[in-house]
């Protein structure tokens, strides 16, 4: 009896602290200036339709390109890392350590400015495209580890059964191991997709033409034109509009996985 009263008291105090904190912040904030800086309806209106047709579209397009590129690179790296041939393993390990250890911003910057000079190649989307290559390189390094874990998560008996039927190591990988590995890693890969949506904002460093601006570049430029934060708030809303459904999807997938086991 005494223990429950004490627990109730402690909960009551924690609630009170929370309410007091929220009230304090709300009272301290200058709502008038906030609204002026971040909620100018006129400025918001002027962002349409480009904020959707160019900025949000490019964010999604760049995410999908980086995801697919990173996935292919990740599969190759994961297979190299699991190879019985030493040099392949070392190369993959070195690559993964390098690009996971560097800030993504630095890699994107390097690709955007070094790649066009070094190889004299023209990438679609110009400098942003070159920056996107940097994002693919980073995404591949992260996904490689996820995919490797997925492959190793498939029970050993599966490969043994396939090999016992006379299937070659590569056929075993393609038709027995990888399909099951991907089933295991759908939730972490979806997570990777969400991270990539946000990481496309790093492409601002690559410099853009009007047609290749993604959400962050677009709204930052708009912010400096109007000298007002409203476009940034819009970008934040749009990012959440895309990412929250996806993170909910991950939660559902993870629950379903847990149940099927």
């Amino acid at each position: 009896m005494r223990r429950t009263t004490r627990r109730r008291l402690r909960r009551g105090i924690l609630y009170a602290i929370f309410v007091a904190f929220v009230a304090l912040v709300a009272l301290a904030a200058d709502w008038g200036r906030l609204r002026q800086q971040f909620l100018q309806i006129d400025i918001a209106r002027e962002q349409f339709p480009e904020i959707i047709t160019i900025a949000a579209k490019n964010t999604l397009l760049f995410t999908v390109v980086a995801f697919i590129g990173g996935l292919i690179l990740g599969i190759v790296l994961a297979l190299m890392k699991l190879s019985t041939i030493g040099p392949y393993r070392w190369l993959a390990t070195g690559y993964i350590e390098l690009f996971r250890g560097l800030p993504a911003l630095l890699t994107i910057f390097a690709m955007a400015y070094v790649l066009p000079i070094a190889l004299e190649i023209r990438v679609p989307f110009g400098q942003v495209g070159a920056g996107l290559v940097g994002l693919i390189l980073v995404a591949g390094a992260y996904m490689a580890e996820t995919i490797r874990a997925g492959i190793q998560g498939v029970p050993k008996g599966q490969a043994e059964a396939a090999r016992s039927l006379g299937m070659s190591p590569s056929w075993t990988m393609v038709s027995v191991i990888l399909p099951q590995a991907f089933r295991i890693i759908v939730p972490p890969l979806t997570n990777e997709f969400v991270l990539l949506i946000k990481d496309t904002s790093l492409l601002f460093i690559a410099g853009s033409t009007i047609q290749t601006k993604e959400l962050t570049t677009f709204t930052r430029d708009a912010q400096s034109v109007y000298f007002n934060g409203t476009p940034l708030l819009m970008a934040a809303m749009l990012y959440l509009f895309i990412t929250i459904p996806l993170t909910r999807l991950v939660a559902v997938l993870e629950r379903r996985m847990a149940r099927s086991r």
Binding site: P155, G157, E160, A161, A162, S164, L165, M167, V176, R183
Partner: peptide, 20 residues
């Protein structure tokens, strides 16, 4: 060895059917 294995059927304790 793959060719040899096509002539030898193998049945495992854990069945090892392909679940997908």
């Amino acid at each position: 060895v793959d060719k040899v294995r096509t002539r030898i059927g193998m049945v495992f304790q854990q069945f090892n059917l392909f679940p997908h």
